[in-house]
Amino acid sequence: MNVRDARKDDARDLAYLINLAGEGMPEYLWRRMAAEGESPMAVGIERAGREEGGFSYRHARVCVHRGRVLGMILDYRLPDPYDLAALADCPSVVRPLVRLEARVPGSWYINALATYPDARGKGVARLLMAQAEASAIAAGCETLSLIVASENRPARRLYDRQGFDEIASLPVIAYPGCRHGGEWQLMTRALDTG
């Protein structure tokens, strides 16, 4: 297995995996963006293939084995200061996430981490997390941050084992296709930059 920067031709894998990591919220949002007759996944694939934007292949890395994508991570540095002026323009289901992100300005944010179901338990997530840590240190960040649904127990266990601590939470706002309820939990881990 190796980790490489995502490419535009990884857009289909990226769309599938970000929807998995995003608890079905991406598909819900893509459905709202889709033109008549267009599938939500087609919208996601198009967005993943963009050159710019938070969800762009340019912010993603993939773990590959024998030419097959096994998992992905979408991560980047959050702005500092973090501007909440446009919060009212965000869909209501996204607002808790944006509010939590704003609590950790300048941190290296793991927006999404997902592994194909048949590749779980093989070290893919740990390998991608190690890559995120190296990127964060190279960018001069002192903290890793992420948000996870409290009811997503497998992901929560992974982040606990990786040394993340919960620092804040806000309720999940239910949406069609919502896979987990409970709360969105903001978790952080200090980096050893010395």
Rank of each mutant, 00 (worst) to 15 (best):
A34R: 00
V69T: 15
M72Y: 12
A139F: 05
A60L: 04
L186W: 07
Q185V: 08
R58C: 05
R58T: 13
G67I: 02
S92R: 10
P117K: 01
A102Y: 15
P154S: 05
I45A: 00
C178Q: 14
L158P: 12
G163A: 06
N19P: 04
R12S: 15
E142Q: 15
R4W: 00
R68Q: 08
A15D: 11
A190Y: 11
S39R: 12
W108Y: 14
Q162T: 07
D9F: 10
M1E: 10
F55S: 12
L158H: 06
L29E: 05
M25D: 01
A42C: 04
A132D: 01
T143A: 04
L144D: 08
K8M: 03
F55W: 14
L70R: 02
I18Q: 03
H59Q: 14
D165Q: 13
A102R: 13
I167D: 03
D5T: 13
H180E: 10
I137Y: 01
L97M: 14
A60D: 12
L100K: 01
R47G: 05
L113G: 06
A130H: 09
R12A: 15
W108A: 00
E46N: 15
A190L: 12
P91Q: 04
P26I: 04
G24M: 06
M1V: 13
A168E: 10
E51K: 09
L127E: 14
A130W: 09
R95N: 07
Y28M: 03
T193I: 13
A149Q: 15
E52P: 07
P79M: 04
L29Y: 04
A168P: 09
L74G: 12
C178F: 11
V3N: 06
A48Y: 02
G106W: 02
A21W: 04
V104A: 07
R68L: 03
A149D: 14
G37C: 13
D83G: 02
C141M: 04
A155F: 01
V104R: 13
E151N: 13
L127N: 09
G177C: 08
T143E: 14
S56K: 06
D9G: 08
F164M: 05
V62F: 08
S150I: 04
K122M: 05
E101C: 09
S92N: 05
G67N: 06
D192T: 00
S135H: 12
G123V: 09
I173Y: 10
Y82H: 13
G181H: 10
R103C: 04
R179T: 08
Y82Q: 11
M33Y: 06
L128P: 08
G54I: 13
M72C: 15
D118S: 00
E46C: 07
E142G: 15
L78F: 02
G163S: 10
G123K: 07
W184G: 07
M1Q: 09
T188D: 06
P91I: 00
P96R: 12
N152G: 09
L128W: 11
V104F: 05
C141E: 06
D80Y: 06
L146C: 10
S56N: 08
G106S: 05
D9T: 14
D5M: 07
T143D: 08
G67R: 06
L29N: 08
